[in-house]
C-alpha cells in the first residue's frame, strides 16, 4: 500500500539504526522503495507501488502453488517438519495422541482450548445429534456404482448436503450453533456410508452415530453381530489416525476450503472442495498409492518407495514428519493383529516386502544423510492393511472424517 511504502531517491536510505523494513531499488528507474516487514513477511500489495510510470500496473509477486506465500495468519497448527514438531494450539502431537480422544482434539482445534468434562459432554452431544443425515442421503448414495471410489462418493454427497440445509450459507447470522458444526458432524456418517457401500454392506440407522472411535469402528465394520464390540486396539488405532490427520495447516485441501469458503458459500460446499483436494494423487491419494505399492509384490517396490518419499509429499511435508512418531505405538498395537490377519493371507508377500522396505530405509546411506524416512503414509498404510481397508477407502474414511475439524484452519 502506498501509505506504507515511501518512495525515496536511490541511495537516500538512512543506514543508521535497524528497522523492520526492506529497501528495494528498481534498476529500471533508479527509485528505491522501503517495504515494511512484519512477521517475517512483506505485503505483496506493497510491490504494486513499484512502477515504471504512473500508468504502469505495478509489480506483482509470481508464486505458482504459493510455495513462498503466506495466505493467512493462524493460531491453530504449528509445524516444523525438519525439527519433527507438530502442535495443535500449542500442544505437542505426542501428548494429544497419548492422552486424548479425537473429539477432544476437534474441540481443541475449533475452540482453542481443551474442553472440561462439562464442555466435552455438551460437545459430544452436539456432534452426535448432528451425525444423523436425511434418509434421502442414503437413497442417492445407493445410486453410486458398486465400485465407486469412496472419495468421489464423499465429495458428491457432502456437496449435496448443502441442498438439505439452504440456510447454511447464512454464515454471518448470529446463531447458537454455527453451521459448520453440523457439517463436521455429518462427515463421519457420509464416510461410513461410502465405506460400507464400497464393501457392499448395508447401511443402517445404527451406523450413523459415530463421533467416537468405538462408534466409528461400528459404523465401518458392524456386520451381523447383535452387539458389535470393537477390538480396543482397532479403536485406538482409529483414534490416533484421526488425531494425526485432524489438521496440517495450510495444505492443498485446507487452501481449497478457504478459497471456496471466501465466496461465503455454505460449509458443505466449501468442505466438498477440500474433499476434492484430498482426492488428488498428490494429496490424500499419496496414502492410497503407498498402500497399493505395499501390496504389489514386485521386486521394484523397495526402490519405488524410496523414490516416492524423495519426490512425494512426504518429503515436502517435513523430512521427518512429526506425525510419524505417533503412529509407531499405534502400529505396534496392531502388529500382532496384522500378523494374524496376514497369515495365510494373500498379502503375505506384501508383508515380507514391507519388512524389506523398512530394512532398506534404515540401512541406506542416503536415507539418513538426506533425512529420508518412511513417511506417515507408509506407516498408516500398514495400519490400514491391518484394519482391512481397501486401498481407496482410507483416504475417504480417515482424511475427511478427521480433517473436517481442521480443514477450516484459519485465523481463528
Amino acid at each position: 500500500m502506498s501509505t506504507e511504502t515511501q518512495k525515496q531517491e536511490a541511495g537516500g536510505v538512512d543506514g543508521a539504526g535497524k528497522r523492520d523494513t526492506l529497501s528495494v531499488t528498481d534498476n529500471r528507474t533508479g527509485q528505491t522503495y522501503e517495504l515494511e516487514i512484519s512477521d517475517g513477511t512483506v505485503r505483496a500489495m506493497d510491490l504494486r507501488a513499484i512502477k515504471v510510470s504512473d500508468d504502469d500496473f505495478g509489480l506483482m509477486a509470481y508464486d505458482p502453488a504459493f510455495t513462498n506465500t503466506a495466505s493467512t495468519r493462524s493460531e491453530i497448527t504449528y509445524i516444523d517438519g525438519a525439527a519433527g514438531i507438530l502442535e495443535y494450539r500449542g500442544y505437542p502431537i505426542e501428548q494429544l495422541c497419548r492422552g486424548l480422544h479425537y473429539l477432544e482434539v476437534a474441540y481443541l482445534l475449533i475452540h482453542g482450548e481443551l474442553p472440561n468434562q462439562e464442555q466435552l459432554d455438551a460437545w459430544t452431544h452436539e456432534i452426535t445429534i448432528h451425525t444423523f443425515v436425511h434418509e434421502n442421503v442414503k437413497s442417492f448414495m445407493q445410486g453410486f456404482r458398486y465400485d465407486a471410489h469412496p472419495m468421489g462418493m464423499l465429495l458428491a454427497s457432502d456437496g449435496a448436503l448443502s441442498t438439505f440445509y439452504p440456510d447454511a450459507n447464512k454464515i454471518k447470522d448470529e446463531s447458537p450453533l454455527p453451521a459448520d458444526h453440523p457439517a463436521d458432524a455429518k462427515m463421519p456418517t457420509l464416510a461410513a456410508f461410502a465405506f460400507r457401500h464400497n464393501m457392499g454392506s448395508r447401511t443402517c440407522i445404527r451406523t450413523t452415530t459415530c463421533p467416537t472411535p468405538a462408534t466409528s469402528s461400528r459404523c465401518m465394520y458392524k456386520m451381523t453381530e447383535l452387539k458389535y464390540q470393537p477390538d480396543p486396539r482397532l479403536e485406538r488405532a482409529l483414534d490416533v489416525l484421526f488425531i494425526l490427520h485432524a489438521d496440517h495447516e495450510q495444505n492443498c485441501s485446507t487452501n481449497a476450503v478457504r478459497a471456496v469458503g471466501s465466496s461465503q458459500v455454505d460449509p458443505y460446499s466449501a468442505i466438498a472442495a477440500g474433499v476434492a483436494g484430498l482426492y488428488g494423487p498428490l494429496h490424500g491419494g499419496a496414502n492410497e498409492q503407498c498402500l497399493r505399492m505395499l501390496r504389489r509384490s514386485d521386486a521394484r517396490t523397495t526402490s519405488r518407495l524410496h523414490r516416492r518419499r524423495e519426490g512425494g509429499q512426504g518429503a515436502a511435508d517435513g523430512l521427518r514428519p512429526p506425525r510419524l512418531q505417533e503412529l509407531r505405538p499405534a502400529r505396534a498395537d496392531h502388529q500382532e493383529g496384522t500378523r494374524r490377519r496376514l497369515r495365510g493371507h494373500r498379502h503375505e508377500p506384501a508383508a515380507r516386502h514391507r519388512a524389506r522396505a523398512r530394512e532398506a530405509s534404515r540401512s541406506r546411506t542416503t536415507t539418513s544423510s538426506r533425512k529420508l524416512y518412511p513417511n506417515v503414509d507408509f506407516y498408516s498404510g500398514l495400519i490400514y492393511e491391518a484394519l482391512d481397508c481397501r486401498s481407496d477407502v482410507p483416504g475417504a474414511v480417515r482424511d475427511r472424517r478427521a480433517r473436517a475439524a481442521g480443514s477450516r484452519s484459519g485465523s481463528r
Binding site: T72, E75, Y91, L120, G280
Partner: peptide, 30 residues
C-alpha cells in the same frame, strides 16, 4: 496447468500467531 513445469500442488504458507509448547492438562484439572 499440468504441462507447466513451474506448477505443483498448491500449499500456501501461514503466519503462525498462536501459542507454543503448552503442557497437556488432564480433563479433571481443566
Amino acid at each position: 496447468m499440468i504441462d507447466d513445469s513451474e506448477q505443483k500442488i498448491a500449499r500456501p504458507r501461514q503466519i503462525y500467531t498462536g501459542e507454543r509448547e503448552r503442557s497437556f492438562v488432564p480433563i479433571a484439572d481443566r
